[in-house]
């Protein structure tokens, strides 16, 4: 009981990102630049989950995301669920949705792409959301979910 308490220790105000696949937790940290935060952050990973097998959870005190920012994590954690907390209460639940365009974040799979050889920010249009397929704005090659690499 005590252990469980530690994991789910409540925050007063902020955001809980739940149902992150265990393998995607650190990518979520990178995408949202959580390592740069100075407010209180609690992570749990490899927790048991009926749906995912092993899941991760992130609790962010006093942090609220814009939809455009949080939706970026859908690339690696489409199953993620957000709980928005105000005064210890869940006031809103959200799911994440893959955006139509991805700027930065992902590396193009094509080693001969200009973005992998010169200082150019990557840019992709999302051609498929269910099974993620990103089309590079520059070299026009497809980066799919198996070879998504977070910059």
């Amino acid at each position: 009981m005590k252990d469980k308490q530690l994991v789910v220790s409540a925050i007063k105000n902020g955001t809980v990102i739940d149902h992150v696949p265990a393998t995607a937790l650190f990518n979520v940290v990178t995408i949202l630049k959580l390592d740069k935060l100075e407010t209180m952050v609690t992570f749990g990973n490899n927790l048991g989950s009926k749906k995912l097998g092993k899941k991760g959870i992130i609790k962010l005190s006093e942090v609220f995301f814009k939809d455009d920012d949080i939706n970026k994590i859908a690339l690696v954690a489409p199953s993620a669920k957000l709980n928005i907390i105000r005064n210890y209460e869940v006031v809103e639940k959200k799911v994440v949705e893959v955006p139509d365009e991805i700027i930065g974040i992902v590396k193009c799979v094509n080693p001969k792409c200009i973005t992998n050889n010169q200082p150019v920010t990557t840019r992709f249009s999302v051609v498929s959301k269910k099974e993620i397929k990103l089309r590079c704005h520059y070299c026009e090659k497809i980066t799919n979910s198996e070879n998504i690499e977070i910059i």
């Binding site: 792409c113 200009i114 973005t115 050889n117 010169q118 150019v120 590079c136 520059y138 070299c139 026009e140």
Partner: peptide, 9 residues
């Protein structure tokens, strides 16, 4: 140019 996407850039 030998790099792909160079012309778009």
């Amino acid at each position: 140019h030998p790099l792909e996407g160079s012309a778009r850039l």
